[in-house]
Design a protein around this nucleic acid. Sequence first.
DNA 1: GCGGCAAAAATCGTATACAATTTCAGAGAC
DNA 2: GTCTCTGAAATTGTATACGATTTTTGCCGC
Lengths: 232, 232
Amino acid sequence: MKQRGERVDAIYAGLRLAILEQVLQPGTKLPEDTIGEQFGASRTVVRRALELLASEELVDIRPNRGATVAKPSLEEARDLFSVRQDVEHLVIRRLCGRLTPAQVKRLEAQIEAEERAHREGRPEYIRHAAEFHLVLAEMTGSPLLARYMRQLVGRSALILGLYGRPRWTDCSVQEHRDLVACLVTGDWARLEPLMHDHLEAVLSRAIDTAAHDKDRGIRDLLAPYAEAARSA
Amino acid sequence: MKQRGERVDAIYAGLRLAILEQVLQPGTKLPEDTIGEQFGASRTVVRRALELLASEELVDIRPNRGATVAKPSLEEARDLFSVRQDVEHLVIRRLCGRLTPAQVKRLEAQIEAEERAHREGRPEYIRHAAEFHLVLAEMTGSPLLARYMRQLVGRSALILGLYGRPRWTDCSVQEHRDLVACLVTGDWARLEPLMHDHLEAVLSRAIDTAAHDKDRGIRDLLAPYAEAARSA
DNA sequence: GCGGCAAAAATCGTATACAATTTCAGAGAC
DNA sequence: GTCTCTGAAATTGTATACGATTTTTGCCGC
């Protein structure tokens, strides 16, 4: 028997990817039996994987009612994005003007991969774009910051899948290039608003339009009742 | 049978407290059987509790070798403290000049409890002092920031227990009062260095003296060998 | 048809069983 | 005395069993 927690990791990674790629959509039930059957593992292992995902808030476990893919509210989304803004700010403050040549090369390679996928229409470009931010965090040399960023990026992806518009990363590639350029030259004055606007464009715009749509939706739903009340 | 994860929480909370109060010291082995016996629960439940603690990095789980109370290295300690500095900075930036009267009252009560415990020589004053920072984070209204702070504060306590000097919170009470005063008046210029120095005094000083001691320890250990080499 | 209710099915929470791995103690070689 | 090796004990990782809870189903009165 494979002893180590290798199995847990496999299921964890599989589910995580499925969630982030929106194969498993928010709200989907995740019964332990079914998943275990799929992966050829017992509930014990599946349970552990689900608990790991819950600790990243990618799945929601409610006592006695099982796990579902997390479905963050707009409020939670806004909280997440505001914290992410702050943490990304910390990251670039630590990196600005301090990148080694090797790091710059790594970042350029990352952007390269992103651009290629984007040009060829492959959907991985989203993952590459997200990874860019994770790589930045890792370059701070702070395991904690990297850990936080990993969670933040993961949850951001989930939320964008929920509320976002399809065209949410149109100009990501160029913006990432600009970010690296400023990081290299240490141009903090330009870097700071660049990152802020970049994230704002990708994240907040998505949920703001979602919020607008939601309001409109409610208004539409209420319209008939209002009319009835008026004519009564 | 009690169905809900209530049992897990009980064991989790119990172990967490024991670790933070240094009843269980870093490095201590935490066998699932023994703990289960103590709490009257099966390994399944204990395991889950240990995994929760591991996700906060209060215990260290190594595959097939069981769990031990975490024993962060000096490097990890420095990383933690630098991130904590940054996160505390985010917290006060969000709160400065925005506290409601109710919040101020809550903070004063917290400091009151801390002072009383301190004056009466009860060791809970450490917990109260730590809680002060957690309460601040919760007041931002950001569940994420609060979560991060909870982890950071917990791990800080663990590390201080490991490396800290006993007199580490001598002036905590007064400093906390000053912090609240600045938060109320919105005196950012004074607040920012106040918080920074407060944390620096409590956290970094502890590990810096530890690092110094450690170097001295190594030198002492090497002294005989050096002497032998010299006389050879 | 259609809400309400009871029984069945599905699913979860915990305990226990067993195999795999690690740890430890003691015997034997040197 | 110290080192190494071997087998037993301790401990973990996973599977399975079973009671408890939730969800679904099917039946009934209306």
